[in-house]
Design a protein around this nucleic acid. Sequence first.
DNA 1: TGCAGGCTTCAAGTGTCCTTCAGGTCTTGT
DNA 2: ACAAGACCTGAAGGACACTTGAAGCCTGCA
Lengths: 158, 158
Amino acid sequence: MAEDTIPSKDHWLSIGEIAHRSGVAASALRFYEDQGLINSRRTAGNQRQYLRSTLRRIAFVQAAQRVGLALAEIKAALDSLPDDRTPTRADWSRLSKSWRSRLDERISELERLRDDLDGCIGCGCLSLQRCNLYNKADRLAERGPGARILNVGIPGEL
Amino acid sequence: MAEDTIPSKDHWLSIGEIAHRSGVAASALRFYEDQGLINSRRTAGNQRQYLRSTLRRIAFVQAAQRVGLALAEIKAALDSLPDDRTPTRADWSRLSKSWRSRLDERISELERLRDDLDGCIGCGCLSLQRCNLYNKADRLAERGPGARILNVGIPGEL
DNA sequence: TGCAGGCTTCAAGTGTCCTTCAGGTCTTGT
DNA sequence: ACAAGACCTGAAGGACACTTGAAGCCTGCA
């Protein structure tokens, strides 16, 4: 396997190369393109060619998904990048900063849930009148919408 | 509104009452029944009637969903409850114990993500070669499968 | 008794994130 | 030049957790 040699010269990458390097299926990449998350130019024969920087964009998408954002939200974030120049560190940094609070929220919600679990279900009460676990008020936006098949991980693992 | 009076005598609840008290739509309750998560008896006129304890079952389902379990997994957990008697505190406790590690895992994954964010995307590197954020190895099972519409919360909020 | 409002079933639709397929084209290496 | 393999498009399918709709039955209260 000689595909690990990284050419130092700027050149365009085929969808297969991008798929390989990013670990994202080619079909998903086409889907992302449909959704406006990434873009490509075409060869004379209509085949996609990507900039190397697309890999970073995809990395961003992947990370954002792990944070729990929907593709539409990720697109909105990416759309706020300047399209007249290659995004700088500062650009990416700005985008990812907004994740911080999301992540913090999600983390603390899960911690709250864990504590409630210990204190409430753990004791078997699960009282509908008092139980925090069943407090509708804070059960919003646990996970983003959309079906993830990936998450099955190793099939039959649970 | 006088529906908050809780009768002390055991009696059966209609789907509307269960929906109201649990906050789960009647259509969802029927769906849960189809999926074997809850059950009901019927009136002479074929209308569903639920035991009061069904509310606890539903609370369990809701909490489990917040932990990130799929309905099929929740069903599996519920199926391990004794069906010859009303589940005890110990029964519920046993079930919810397995969530602990799940929750801990999810929490630490998110914390890891947050740290990577600070250390990596935060600085703008997002290096595909080294970046933890883009380490495929640990990007499993971020969120459970399935579409949640609820999570949209207040539409147009984000 | 009458009737509004709640309940029934079954089928189809929704939203998200893709994958798979069919049928055809392009590129690359020998 | 030719075959193998990569790539193209558009449509359909699939997983998940439901919702919506149509057409009709049941129940509680005045």
